[in-house]
Nucleic acid binder design. Structure first.
Lengths: 337, 337
DNA sequence: CCGATCTCTGGGAGCGCTCCCATTGGAAGC
DNA sequence: GCTTCCAATGGGAGCGCTCCCAGAGATCGG
């Protein structure tokens, strides 16, 4: 422990010398490559143990031109969007999958200009072996840069516009349709939607699902009440909705946060849920269970989303060519609808 | 864009050649070091622009023995603890501060054995310029390893046991005491605590705060009802509490999740909050505002915690010797107490 | 007018690893 | 017995950067 402030880590040369072999043999033994006799292989292993050798990742990275890290970029100008537990779950999934491939996770919150600059640099100079991109806004230049970069890129959730080459997404439209259809099947007729930001693909897709369900039932969709996926925007949106359409009897909110906000407004307005008005959300994060009443919602496999993004990235890094993946949602009935 | 699959990035040598200078001069110009004439400096800058040069971080790292990255390690055997929005906020804060120092953020979820192994390696071989450690369990060997590693280490929240050399923490005891005192000041006399894991320092410190407040008021603290900081454990703990002490009129929960769970149980049991029983939490994350009734709670500056951890780490990396930091909490009164 | 002192400059030696390649020696094939 | 082949080995050349250092001019005071 004390032993001087800085007991320098042994190098591969020292291991080789200790084992009485050349650097090449030691290297091969370490990466258990072929062409190493049993005796020398063991001698090297012993030397490694005795000296407490750990390969220097940077040196290896320079030689192999592989950094051993994958980046997860969360765009969006407000860093607060990252505070959504959604991302935490994605990270848990991605982290586990990357661990299996022995890749480190680099997290880039590209909110500020400076943050974006650094991501661009990362893309340009191969600062990571691959990049996962999430929460891109419409026309975010990062999307183009990423696609053009000579680097594996996986999108988490499709960006607005033409679908990228590699992505993992959730069946937003299908889930939203199912939720809306459920409300309709309960006999609700004046069903509105608190939709999410319509400059995100998730916001649009979920709105499409709502609209499709309404049209499918021969009903006129109500004009979307747009929010930004936050609880306050749900509360405000619900208030606006009530003032415009006092007879609304069902609401599909584009996520649980907004649904929770809607519940708050409804409670304040003295409307009972689900008797007067039914509310369904999307996400099924913790807030759905905590809400009062607990939210009927569309469960998204968020952790799986992260995991599959990472797996897809690993496949790309390994030279394979995986196909895009759309994960199914699952409708969860609780008390709010 | 197409231009061949892999337009290799230009190297510093190429920049130097293009600018008609030596590699050394080019390097100095880039790092704007002295001893470069104005003319050559500009020639280099022009070459950089023309060629689209971006320095290769790995090569630089190898030469300077600095990785340009800081690691944030979240220990704890269950990866789900990371899903707590608490960590997301820490990350937002840390990320911003690291960005200022031009360091990348490496996130290590050291849940599995494999994950822990990788953290150990990171520490041993200087895979990062510094490490921030959070959510260590009692007697976690990572604590010792980190302190012994020849690498700057900052703890986020003190681990159980002797305080580490460098840490940033929140005034858990003070916050808990204040919350409990508030309940007592309201005239509550049978005040219990849903404490957090007592094998974490935060759990212990908040319990101490509760106990101190009770003793300070000349009351006998009720035996702690231990949970694990999750909503279900709060709900279960509250149920246990009610069956043991039916006359409880106030509860201090060690965090908002548990408080939310308590609210759920109380609602189911038909107790009105705060009339029959007052509830206070700790954290002041989103859930506190969403809860019904909104939670009176102890606000922790979580983002600042992350920011200060990162700043302390940067200071250490720069050879300074910062002193530990304890951030104040702020008591927030809402409807639950 | 000449040594002393600077600012610039570029050559070169690493940083610690991988990997190509030439060399060796023993086993196998004829 | 002699080529043929292949496993095993170690030397050496990078990977792209930093930084030390020696040398070349330029500046300047005495």
């Amino acid at each position: 422990m004390p032993a001087g402030p800085s007991r320098r880590q042994p190098t591969l040369d020292e291991v080789a010398e200790h084992a009485g072999v050349s650097r090449s043999v030691a290297s091969r033994a370490l990466n258990n490559a072929p062409h190493v006799s049993r005796a020398k292989r063991e001698a090297v292993q012993r030397a490694v143990r005795v000296l407490g050798y750990v390969p220097h990742p940077t040196a290896r990275a320079l030689a192999t031109r592989q950094t051993g890290a994958a980046a997860l970029v969360v765009a969006g100008e407000d860093p607060s969007i990252f505070a959504d537990p959604f991302f935490a779950e994605v990270i848990v999934g991605a982290s586990a999958a990357l661990e299996e491939a022995d890749l480190h996770l680099m997290l880039c919150l590209a909110a500020s200009d400076r943050g974006r600059k650094r991501v661009e640099e990362l893309l340009r100079c191969r600062g990571a072996d691959g990049v996962m991109l999430m929460a891109l806004r419409e026309d975010d230049p990062l999307a183009r840069l990423a696609e053009e970069a000579d680097l594996p890129v996986v999108f988490g959730g499709r960006p607005v516009g033409p679908a990228p080459r590699h992505y993992v997404d959730v069946d937003n439209t299908g889930g939203a349709r199912e939720a809306t259809e459920y409300l309709l099947a309960q006999g609700r007729r004046r069903v509105a939607t608190l939709c999410g930001r319509l400059d995100t693909e998730a916001g649009r897709a979920r709105y499409r699902g709502y609209r499709d369900a309404m049209l499918g039932a021969g009903l006129e969709p109500l004009p979307p009440q747009e929010g930004d996926f936050t609880e306050p925007s749900g509360a405000a949106g619900m208030a606006a909705l009530l003032s415009r359409h006092a007879d609304v009897d069902g609401v599909f909110a584009a996520n649980d946060n907004m649904a929770a906000g809607a519940l708050r407004t409804l409670r304040a307005a003295g409307r009972s849920v689900p008797d007067d008005i039914a509310v369904a959300g999307f996400d099924d994060l913790t807030v759905a269970r905590i809400a009062d009443p607990p939210l009927t919602t569309v469960h998204q496999p968020v952790r799986a989303l992260g995991r599959e993004m990472a797996r897809m990235l690993v496949a790309l890094v390994n030279g394979q060519d995986p196909t895009p993946l759309i994960l199914p949602t699952r409708f969860v009935v609780r008390a709010s609808a």
